[in-house]
């Protein structure tokens, strides 16, 4: 599973981080960092929750 974030849409509100902190981190500099671009299948449920929670639909799974 590959994570793609549209950084033009991302508002750094960290909802994704609350669902999957292993994959997404919004740092104090106000930017979102993707900690694992290709997380394992065991992360799928959490990443899908992040996709659904993201208020700007900035995250897609490829």
């Amino acid at each position: 599973m590959k994570i793609v974030v549209d950084f033009d849409k991302c508002q750094s509100n960290a909802l994704c981080m609350s669902a999957a902190p292993e994959v997404f981190e919004v740092r104090d500099d106000g930017y979102l960092y993707i900690l694992q671009e290709n997380p394992g299948e065991e992360m799928r449920a959490k990443v899908e929750e992040a996709v659904r929670l993201c208020p700007t639909q900035a995250i897609t799974i490829e």
Partner: peptide, 10 residues
């Protein structure tokens, strides 16, 4: 303070 407030969700 997005990262800090969202940490409280759980």
């Amino acid at each position: 303070m997005p990262r800090h407030v969202m940490a409280y969700r759980r």
